[in-house]
Nucleic acid binder design. Structure first.
Length: 514
DNA sequence: AAGCGCAGCAACCGCCACGCC
DNA sequence: CGGCGTGGCGGTTGCTGCGCT
């Protein structure tokens, strides 16, 4: 066998493939490539890859090596593209707000870097992972709790530390990270723990948690009163907290709907509102749990931020239940919370539940909000609805409804989103897909700003009161997915606009949340 | 100047899920 | 059903630059 190098660009600095002619016994010759290049990418390699992806699109990464002179394996190409070459990548160090989000996401997701990256547009899983690992090392070295932001005022947890309760009896002001640090008493969902357990609360929770699957761990809030029930519209309908005298008139409580589903439902509603940009409301994702419902009680409420410059209309939050929507909801579909205490419910369930636990336990989870968002937009834009069995679409005036009629067809999320004014969502979908990155960026542009103001508001009263419990289990997406996004929606109907008024997120599944 | 530790970053590796045949 | 290819994800390693001693 004769081996002849026919193109000795062998792993040169341009990263071109070294081609070797391998002559077989019968004069037959084949061409094989030799060792692929490793190590840092050169600008030439980048240019080749960019050119290829521009012309052929993403995916089929091994074809890059076959069809170009690039001596890189498909994995390497994909990684290079995803982490460095693809458009809309945000370079540079993380902002403080992004860091906060990462901490929060990690408290919720664990080491699910890709998931976090999906919620941080322009950021890659690798970046987030590197940041977190650095943070772990730094905090470990400095003896800091992993989930306490060093930029915030540290709050030493003591026996007298305030515990946030839904009763409004405690009005101490703490920051969101104080929550993480202080709240010892609840055993919240801990999905995955960092390899470096320098957070005693996490370790405690790790030991206390039952071997329920990480996606299905219920949260318990024994001290809390019975939660109300919710309709899917309640989270669009933040309740003014005026009923609680300890709350400022600015305060609103956002109640997460409780997806207690006997049947899965995928349902979309598009509505046209005159002054609305495209926004996407959180997915409502059925959860999987083997726990009895009456053991599932969870605090999940938070306040909307104040945004005086908003163009949002309060009407947005007061969308009534539409007849057609009632029709779509299966008879056993309900958003409810603590079912055994209907008297404590602030509002009646849409429909009386007939919850079968074994059915709930069979639910799988879906991707997070943005993933769902992206999927839907792309599917609509590319006309892939044909893939969806029994998927219906109905126009009703300016409203367009889509949904699945049968349980088995439902991808197990319920997504609400809104079209821009006067545009058919179908037609808009392509534009939506195109502008998706911008929309997501818009989210993140607003989101971090809404997370500010948790510091320096120690004079506020009743910041942590009137937080209502709800029956909530999140797999690992719903709660956190919706909260930051929902925080984008302003309280334009707030009556007392205090420019300096802070706000707080309250949500569950944060380790150590009280 | 040299050595060291550290942070930040980039890239690789192994494993796994999924689709196709 | 199993093999194979492919892509995605998380863990890990290695390189580089910087500051400090």
């Amino acid at each position: 066998m004769n081996i002849t190098t026919i193109n000795d660009a062998s792993n040169d600095e341009n990263g071109l493939v070294s081609m070797i002619s391998v002559s077989g016994g019968g004069g037959h010759s084949v061409v094989e490539e030799v060792a692929l290049k490793k190590g840092p990418w050169t600008t030439t390699e980048d240019a080749i890859l960019i050119d290829y992806v521009t012309n052929h699109g993403e995916g089929n990464w091994n074809a890059v090596q076959r069809n170009t002179w690039l001596a890189r394996c498909g994995k390497s190409c994909r990684l290079r593209w995803a982490n460095h070459l693809r458009p809309n990548l945000k370079k540079g160090s993380f902002s403080h707000d992004e860091e906060k989000l990462i901490v929060l996401f990690h408290s919720q997701f664990g080491n699910k870097w890709a998931r976090m990256a999906a919620l941080l547009p322009g950021r890659t899983d690798n970046e987030i992972k590197n940041y977190w690992n650095t943070r772990v090392k730094r905090h470990h070295r400095q003896g800091l709790p992993l989930y306490l932001d060093e930029h915030d005022q540290p709050t030493t947890p003591t026996a007298s530390s305030p515990c946030v309760t839904p009763t409004g009896s405690n009005t101490n002001t703490v920051t969101d990270f104080d929550f993480l640090h202080q709240n010892h008493h609840h055993h919240h969902t801990v999905f995955k723990l960092s390899p470096v357990l320098d957070h005693p609360i996490l370790e405690t929770e790790l030991h206390h948690h039952s071997p329920i699957s990480p996606k299905a761990q219920p949260s318990h809030h024994p001290p809390f009163s019975s939660p109300p029930s919710y309709s899917p519209h309640h989270f669009m309908d933040p309740t003014p907290s005026n009923s609680n005298p300890q709350l400022s008139s600015l305060s609103f409580t956002f109640q997460k709907p409780t997806p207690v589903l006997d049947s899965a439902l995928r349902f979309k509603r598009y509505r046209s509102y005159p002054n609305f940009s495209l926004y996407h409301l959180p997915s409502i994702t059925p959860y999987s749990t083997s726990a009895p419902l009456d053991q599932i009680a969870d605090l999940d409420a938070f306040r909307f931020p104040q945004q005086n410059n908003s163009s949002f209309s309060p009407q947005y939050f007061q969308t009534p239940l539409l007849d057609y929507e009632r029709m779509v909801l299966p008879s056993n579909f309900v958003f409810s919370s603590k079912l055994e205490h209907p008297s404590d419910q602030l509002s009646q369930p849409l429909l009386q539940p007939e919850v079968k636990h074994h059915d709930i336990a069979t639910f799988e989870t879906n991707s997070g909000l943005l993933g769902d968002f992206i999927f839907d937009a792309q599917a609509l834009a590319s006309g892939q609805n044909s893939k969806k069995r029994n998927y219906f679409s109905l126009n009703e005036g300016n409203d367009v409804f889509e949904g699945y009629q049968n349980f088995e067809d439902c991808p197990l999320t319920s997504t609400y989103w809104f079209s821009t004014s006067g545009v058919n969502p179908k037609e808009e979908a392509s534009d939506l897909s195109k502008s998706m990155n911008e929309d997501i960026s818009k989210f993140l542009t607003v989101m971090p700003s809404t997370m500010q103001g948790t510091e320096g508001n120690n004079n506020s009263e009743a910041e942590v009161s009137n937080v209502q419990s709800s029956t909530v289990i999140t797999d690992d997406n719903f709660g956190l997915d919706m909260k930051p996004i929902a925080s984008l929606f302003p309280l334009s109907n707030a009556t007392n606009h205090n420019e300096n008024q802070g706000y707080y997120y309250y949500w569950d599944n944060l380790p150590g949340l009280c």
